[in-house]
Design a protein around this nucleic acid. Sequence first.
DNA 1: GGTACAATGACAACATGCTGACAGTTGAAG
DNA 2: CTTCAACTGTCAGCATGTTGTCATTGTACC
Lengths: 145, 145
Amino acid sequence: MHGSKRVLFLDLVLSVFRLNGLLIAEGDDMTEGLGLTHARWKVIGAIALSNNGLTVPGIARVLGQSRQAVQRITDVMVEDGLLEYHKNPKHKRSVLVLLSEQGKEIYNTLREVQDPWAIDATEDIPVEELETALRLIRRLIKKFN
Amino acid sequence: MHGSKRVLFLDLVLSVFRLNGLLIAEGDDMTEGLGLTHARWKVIGAIALSNNGLTVPGIARVLGQSRQAVQRITDVMVEDGLLEYHKNPKHKRSVLVLLSEQGKEIYNTLREVQDPWAIDATEDIPVEELETALRLIRRLIKKFN
DNA sequence: GGTACAATGACAACATGCTGACAGTTGAAG
DNA sequence: CTTCAACTGTCAGCATGTTGTCATTGTACC
């Protein structure tokens, strides 16, 4: 009988939905004044975490979104001077997306708010619990991928 | 120095974003053929879990969304015969949203797919890990609420 | 009872996400 | 070298979510 396990898991799923919304709200609060929406700081974060830049479909894979949705955002962000398209030696059409100088400045400003936030959020949570939760979430990601 | 804990947490945040997207995709796959979108099965689920029906703003609070977004969905779902608006003895304007007969049937059909899915997804995951992860996520939800 | 504040429905403008479709590019298998 | 499937950019249509605004209804406080 796996009844309680099933309920436990459905509870987890609903909680992930809820936490997802709250995390986006937190991010939007943090980026208030930087002129960023959640779609934008997600892209900036994904690029900043990569060393050599990412292609548009690459960003989409990291964020778990469609490449078309990411393409639309990056196009506007390039127009706004936050990102730059660079030639990709490995692909004639698929350019690399990198942070512009302005984009880097905004990311640094974001980090100044984000770092204390992350530390505060995990203040009273043991590292082991974070690791267990992350491992479980990764396992589910792999399963559903 | 909380550096590694900070990185661990940011990794967790990104993974929650990713898992959120994958779970919605899983739900959409399960409801394929039922004519439901994720906005719709979330509403049906929220109402089904409540005993006496919910008002539109009430659904919004449960799902962590704006009442306007939920209102638009429920209006169309009433038109489509999935939901019904009933008089609310406690409020002259704010009606109660309930599942119609067709809505109940669809929810039952959904359960027939959802239950095996939940069992399969957690097949090789110990209950203790599920509980640890859920506890952590709930703690974060409470923190950001 | 009256009054101030919160909650609700309704509508609009906008940002974001998805899928489908089509053409050009890449890479791997034959 | 050829061929074909997968990947990519681009455009279009549509569903969803957010914020803002306004009038109406509820509630709490005096």
